[in-house]
Design a binder for these strands. Structure first.
Lengths: 346, 346
DNA sequence: TTGAAAGCGCTAACAG
DNA sequence: CTGTTAGCGCTTTCAA
């Protein structure tokens, strides 16, 4: 193991008895170098197993060719899929990605942003933490001229580019679908409405009720929970024990919908015959449980790709352009499955 | 937006009329600087919103404080959980992580390694692609003195540290459990046995048969498939159509197990009464389908954490130590659920 | 088309 | 305890 030092452009310049700047130009395909020397240099580089030192060139050029990603939880299918999309697009454009988890904590999120700034990322794509109420850390980044774009979730009142889905519309569609099945009372397991996406989904529900001329007072019961299997399970058990009546559940993500469905089945209810169940996000699991659960497909990979494209575009043209604040809305899609189709309706 | 240039240690040195090297030392808590100036400098730094430029210090110190991760698919629950573990441990130690997906492709994997080397990561944690048969790209990294450790999957014949689970043992346990239920013929949906983990799981099955004195010729049927829901579904349908007999399925991951279970149910078989079904990996979904599926819990987060700890340790002490090649084996755990417990047995 | 020289922001000898 | 100085590997004027 004696390859202590890695080979630099100076090493290959020395070998070729030319200047390192020429080597640099040749390697970067600069037109101001003859095709001949270009070839010689490139061959030599390969022969010597030259591997450019990004650290150095990044320092020199003041750009890291890296974009930072901050998500609440990398293990959630939606986010890992979105990240996958970002990564693909970034690599295509010659960018690396650094990924951070906020664990839905404001402090961690602020810390992550500082780390990313220190690493001199060229831009940040963030889906903010639930608890994010302060926005200082985000504005810090913007003040430093590192662009920070939102994807999926966003914070109201911050002027920047967002890539989101039309949750509100599709939530309304889903609610209308449930109402059309002739339900009497809808139980909603909602997420924290301080988070943009849950807020929009709730608004979509109200839109549907309004459009149908129905009274939300008597026909709707809504509870905010932590949207996971266990909490949804508990919430439903509570409702059942307290004799709360309802004949449909709209849970704002699929894991909660599954938890709800299992709780209902444990309590002897049949889905969909007695009670309908719907979720949101179209996790792979939603179609594998029994009955398969009606949900909303969100184009996670596309969101990631588009967000990546937008920020890379912005980075590469930012010398001239004004700070663009733009909202791209991707369509999500209602997927109706057995959990919301009463047999009588079939 | 006029904060064009970010503040450097020279800026704060100028303000304080001291030398930038003193500032550097103060910021790094170097003992060779008085507590007084340390405080002055740190206050000033905060006041000026100084944010260190890692690019520069990394170039200078020849370390990036970054570790690279390569996994086949970031969207698989096992890997995203492992990554989450790596990330946590890395951040704790002041390291960033750069994540790459190989998409199970050898070319992409090689490319990823080059990218990571160019980014001068201090070390690489990899779970290699299925198709990886050539090992040049991995040896390239090692030759360059960037440590590259395996986690979960590994490539035989490469001497380096691995963090893996005792798949073989637990696979044997699982098989014994199935045999104890009095089954006549076990159908195995295996992954590509060129991949270490699947190879080990198959070996565990044979271990169990041997220990039970059973004949694998007549009591075992094994097919290699792509381990996902659809392929497993198809495979089972094929077996059923071709009148292959079996009364238990051992699929080498949970998604395949679920696909198999659904196919069986569609064909009118009852699980577990007619046929037992078991999976592997303990994805969250496995306990949510009906019946819940027996599986093997692998400590993904712990694998990630341990791998991170080991490589960071190695990086920080590598000046003195010889290349250590060590294999850490974490225990996985058999989780028995309804899908393999015949009612008569209960 | 090529070379010389300066410098990105930071750290680390070495002096004092 | 603090300052001086040099240099990490690369890019980029400016001159030739």
């Amino acid at each position: 193991m004696e390859n202590k030092k890695s080979v630099t452009i100076h090493d290959i310049a020395k070998e070729l008895k030319i200047d390192s700047s020429t080597v640099s130009r040749a390697l970067n395909n600069n037109p101001r170098v003859s095709a001949k020397t270009k070839k010689i240099v490139q061959d030599k580089a390969k022969e010597m197993h030259y591997q450019p030192n990004n650290l150095a060139s990044n320092l020199r050029t003041q750009k890291s060719n890296t974009i930072g990603i901050i998500v609440p939880h990398i293990t959630k299918y939606f986010f890992s899929t979105a990240i996958s999309g970002i990564e693909e697009e970034a690599h295509k454009a010659g960018y690396n990605v650094i990924i951070c988890q906020s664990k839905d904590s404001e402090e961690l999120e602020a810390k992550n942003i500082n780390t990313l700034i220190s690493s001199r990322v060229d831009g940040i794509l963030i889906s903010p933490a639930i608890k994010t109420s302060k926005i200082d850390h985000i504005e810090t980044a913007m003040k430093r001229n590192v662009p920070i774009f939102f994807f999926d979730r966003y914070i109201k009142g911050i002027e920047t580019t967002k890539v989101i889905t039309d949750d509100r519309t599709t939530s309304k569609e889903l609610t209308l679908h449930l109402l059309e099945q002739g339900i009497q009372k809808l139980g909603v397991l909602a997420g924290d409405t301080k988070v943009s996406i849950y807020d929009n989904r709730v608004k979509g529900i109200y839109d549907a009720f309004k459009e149908s001329g129905l009274n939300t007072e008597s026909k709707l019961i809504l509870q905010q929970i932590k949207l996971d299997v266990d909490d949804a399970h508990d919430a439903i058990n509570n409702w059942v024990q307290n004799k709360v009546t309802f004949d449909a559940i709209f849970a704002m993500n699929d894991m909660a919908a599954i938890g709800a469905q299992i709780a209902l089945q444990e309590n002897g209810y049949k889905v969909p015959d007695d009670i309908l169940v719907a979720g949101f996000s179209n996790e792979p699991i939603a179609k594998l449980v029994s009955p398969p659960i009606t949900t909303v497909h969100q184009p996670a990979a596309e969101i990631g790709k588009l967000a990546a494209k937008k920020i890379i575009n912005y980075i590469q043209e930012s010398d001239t352009s004004i700070l663009a604040s733009e909202t791209a809305v991707l369509k999500s899609e209602l997927i109706i499955r057995a959990s919301t189709e009463k047999k009588s309706t079939t």
